[in-house]
Amino acid sequence: MFELSKEGVEFVKKEMQRYETKRSAIIPALYKVQEENGGWVSPECVTYLSQLMDLPEVWINEVLNFYTMFNKEPVGKYHVQVCCNVSCAMNGGRELADHLCKELNIKDGRHSEDGRYTLSRVECLGSCGTAPMMQVNDKYYENLTKESAVQILKELP
């Protein structure tokens, strides 16, 4: 059974007070759950949040499934999101993603075999002037080359 930590519960309760409606706290609460559940939100997390927040499961599940930043399946320690939208595509974003798959042993195009990386090809991240770029968990890495990207990822702790 998934449960938030004490701090996590406090955070969610505070967020429920923070906005005009407690429903607004669904997004921040899901972020918190994702953080504490190893990077993704499982169905049992939804049930848990529904009880904690006293909101219908379906509301939480709708939000969970609408937004791309919530992961509906387990992800690696580093979630590498490579932008493949227009400006990045024009500057080698797609080739960069392919290259990373090869270099990081990501055979199915999603997860590296050691579970360290999950790779997603994503839409515009608002870093078009510094293409190509990738987001690793929360952080942006810009003006990448194939080599620099691999190096950055390999040097992560």
Binding site: V58, W59, N61, E62, F66
Partner: peptide
């Protein structure tokens, strides 16, 4: 009773109950 919702977006949107309840 809020059993039904629409999950996902675009042409992947699907009607359903949470976990097929």
């Amino acid at each position: 009773t809020y059993e039904l919702g629409i999950f996902n977006r675009g042409d992947r949107s699907e009607i359903g109950t949470f976990e097929n309840k």
